[in-house]
Design a protein around this nucleic acid. Structure first.
Lengths: 204, 204, 204, 204
DNA sequence: CATGAATGAGTATTCATTCAT
DNA sequence: AATGAATGAATACTCATTCAT
């Protein structure tokens, strides 16, 4: 029993190493660019062992992508509700943005998008986790703000998408094309303008 | 003269065939996945002829993307300026969107994004053509509207990005993950809401 | 242990096969003309295996040249120092010359020279191994002879080049142009004359 | 008649242009490296015309090499005979060397040598023109010097080869491997040492 | 007669995957 | 159970040569 469980532990650890190494490689080089040999080497296993754990490159990628998408939780944390709409909005927006930066969600999105033609089901799933999930979270905050009278009643689902759309345009879209894109110095001002746009229409 | 013009005609036709075949292949298999040999075969030319026309795979891809982007731009055509802001906005938005759908620009964008890790320069260039170019055009319309008193003076560059950002959220982002994504029946209403948001802030 | 050593043995043998096949192909077709596929086939390995052993064609060629040069060096062996200058000189010259003939170094030199316009760095390296290395060895012998009083003190570096130059004129230069060149019957006499020339100037 | 002769003239001029362009390309890129298309372009003719004039790349190279070897005449000029052996020798050596430098004989030699395995007859011929011819010329001078009592009677054929061998070692051999090789500042001193070596043995 | 376009056969190199040990 | 070595099939790209106009 003990020997078995030890073996299991080792095996699990190896699997985790492989997944980690695979994520790193996929992010860095893209799906096609990442070489199985490199992934194996980075995980300190032989290619044979790699293939014992994951039947093919595609299987490995699926495992990596779902794991990563699930792991990447926006640690937006709790937001205080005793402030003005401005304050709340700012925090909301920047929390999302920070999470995105920190966890390299854009890089992952890029790789996943790339695989759309070959694995539509996978990407649909990732889309749910990564995009729709975040929308729901944003909407919940908007609803709360409506409840508190900070925003007037409106279609918060659509509103959440508009807000996210504008933010993505500033903070996600360019990085999707240029991984080393650095934000212009006036990014904060521009983000504030997003709120003004939003509040002009939906502010209480 | 006759010989020359004949040759030119044949050459142009061949070039068009190649571009068409290349677009098809890139969309189907992605940049890396598409083989120059397949592209050549589909266009009924030898690989050598392919290379006479386009110096490299990258050049070919750039040409394909440029062509697509240019076609999109052209299709938008001229917009009448004798209407209300609402009307103009609607046309602007839908013109871009329709062109985008028709020419499968989103699919192409996907392919471009996929290549970011391996060819940053290429994607940067395409980004300029496909994204920045469109932004400029939108901005020009907004400027015109400001001039005509339909919008109040504001930062139209940022405004153009906000408008595009919201539209992208509705019409581009989902198709990026799900190529067979079909618009919900209320998409038009939602697009109209985009205008309301915009006009609430920037309307005259 | 057994497994490892077995693998090592097999690997070494394969490497030797590849080098042999590569030498053969390079000599027969020249650097550019020799195809990696042919080299692999002649060595009974796949091209992939070939590339596992040698990172590139250039690396393979360098290895071949180094091997040939090294073998030549080794073959010269140790020379007795208890004889007259004449004797020593004769041995020195003929040892080099014989080794050169046996290992087809001249043919290899031809191949190297042919690649000068396209890969100057490669040829520069080979020049170091094949020409400069041999010069140094010759010079070391001359120094020893000076030490033993068989030659009077002089610039042995230049001396080595003079001696080699004269020998090359007789034994290398013609074979460079005519691979099937056979030495005239009086070649030995002529080589002896080289020594006389040398000793007339530098003899003790 | 006039029309015909005009045509002939044009044709001859074209042929000359091609040969010139071919020489340039062969020298710069080597035999394999020189592309027929480039040669044609440099000569301002179409590839088809190129092939009308020379049946194949090999035929073109043969024509180029023989022409070049013949053209490259060492314009040693006439040497005064009223000087010391030293003076004469210096002039002789440097005249050859200068011609070599000026006409890029080394570059040609390199290309020709490269083709030895594929066209032994051609290279044998070139060897006669380029190497043996020069030897004979040198020997003639040595004979003259013997006649004038500047050198003691000896085998001047062998002597010429020795002298040339030492000079080649200094001035030809390195440039054969390194086309951008520049002579060390003490090259003249070293060349003078060649004479000392020669005169130590053969001086009157 | 001259041309520009076209090509088939070839090049070095890479990589996901398998297998003998 | 784990490995290092092996590979077949594929890829972008080139070039001497030919042919329709």
């Amino acid at each position: 029993m003990s020997v078995e469980s030890y073996r299991q532990t080792v095996k699990d650890a190896k699997r985790a190493d492989i997944l980690k190494s695979a994520l790193k490689n996929f992010l860095k080089y893209g799906y096609t660019g990442a070489a199985m040999a490199s992934i194996a080497e980075d995980a300190d296993v032989s290619t044979a062992t790699l293939y014992k754990n994951f039947a093919s490159k595609e299987a490995l990628f699926t495992a990596v992508a779902t794991m990563a998408a699930t792991t990447v939780q926006e640690d937006v944390g709790e937001l205080p509700m005793d402030a003005t709409a401005y304050d709340i909005f700012t925090k909301l927006i920047w929390a999302f943005h920070a999470a995105q930066q920190e966890h390299r969600v854009n890089d992952l999105i890029r790789v996943v998008i790339a695989e759309v033609p070959s694995s539509p089901d996978l990407t649909r799933e990732i889309f749910q986790i990564l995009v729709v999930g975040r929308q729901k979270k944003t909407r919940a905050y908007l609803d709360l703000m409506v409840e508190r009278g900070l925003l007037k009643p409106h279609d918060t689902e659509l509103g959440a998408r508009f807000a996210m759309g504008m933010i993505k345009e500033l903070a996600v879209w360019p990085t999707l094309f240029m991984p080393d894109y650095t934000f212009p110095p006036d990014i904060l001002e521009r983000a504030r303008e997003v709120m003004d746009v939003y509040l002009a229409r939906y502010g209480a």
